[in-house]
């Protein structure tokens, strides 16, 4: 049996890197005394599986982490005991029990929704929000993606599922996030700023939700 946890990583700890966060989860699970399964072998370790690491500096409201467990336990009890052992800025919002055969969260992940609070003190911010309809009307959006191996030209339009203005300096967008292709909020904003003819404004980005794909439509990852 395994448990999928829906975790909130709060703004205060947004600079905790992925590995540090996983270590924090492991220590919390140890404190909780929950029946987590360890790997076999010389150096046994907990087999935690995160859907997608968060970028440094980005809070996440509904992040999915999979934990294999060794004994039957109700998801409600698991959530309660874990929350009692977690630091205040890291919370478990929901838990769901699944059979071991169920696919890993990373394998099902297709997209994520982001809230981008643009710096209201920068003029570029309003210009970017104003350029949003034009961006969505475009058939192609050529951009240059920086990868480990160099810079690659690409079209980011198919990787934008939806985007909308939420206020004079705020944009919300659902962007592809999977092995086949990922559009990071940073590149999204660069393209948007390019269309608006301004420098990319500073932004405070929160990841709101992760999605899987079912019958051609996005569904919440925790429900997949």
């Amino acid at each position: 049996m395994k448990i999928w946890l829906t975790m909130e990583k709060g703004a205060r700890i947004r600079f905790t890197g992925h590995l540090d966060l996983m270590r924090t989860m492991q220590r919390a699970l140890r404190r909780s005394g929950l029946p987590v399964r360890y790997s076999q072998g010389f150096n046994p370790h907990m087999l935690l599986n995160a859907a997608a690491p968060l970028s440094l500096g980005m809070p996440g409201l509904r992040e999915i982490i999979e934990v294999p467990v060794g004994e039957e336990i109700t998801p409600e009890a698991f959530q309660e005991r874990l929350n009692a052992a977690l630091p205040p800025d890291l919370r478990c919002r929901a838990a769901r029990a699944l059979p071991d055969e169920h696919a890993a969260p990373m394998a099902l992940l297709r997209a994520a929704r982001y809230l981008m609070d643009l710096d209201e003190e920068q003029q570029a911010s309003a210009a970017c929000v104003a350029a949003l309809p034009g961006m969505l009307a475009a058939d192609t959006l050529p951009a240059v993606r920086k990868t480990k191996t160099g810079e690659k030209p690409c079209d980011v339009r198919p990787m934008i599922y939806e985007a909308q203005a939420m206020g004079p300096h705020t944009v919300c967008a659902t962007l592809a996030l999977c092995e086949a292709g990922t559009l990071k909020p940073d590149l999204f904003l660069s393209v948007l700023a390019g269309l608006a003819g301004v420098d990319k404004p500073d932004a405070f980005v929160t990841r709101l939700q992760l999605y899987a794909m079912q019958d051609g439509a996005l569904i919440r990852l925790e429900e997949s």
Binding site: G10, R12, I13, D20, R27, P87, D89, D202
Partner: peptide, 14 residues
């Protein structure tokens, strides 16, 4: 956002 090891300054540890 701009400094090395920002988690040095944010607290909130267990």
């Amino acid at each position: 956002e701009k400094v090395e090891k920002p988690a040095r300054y944010t607290g909130g540890e267990m």
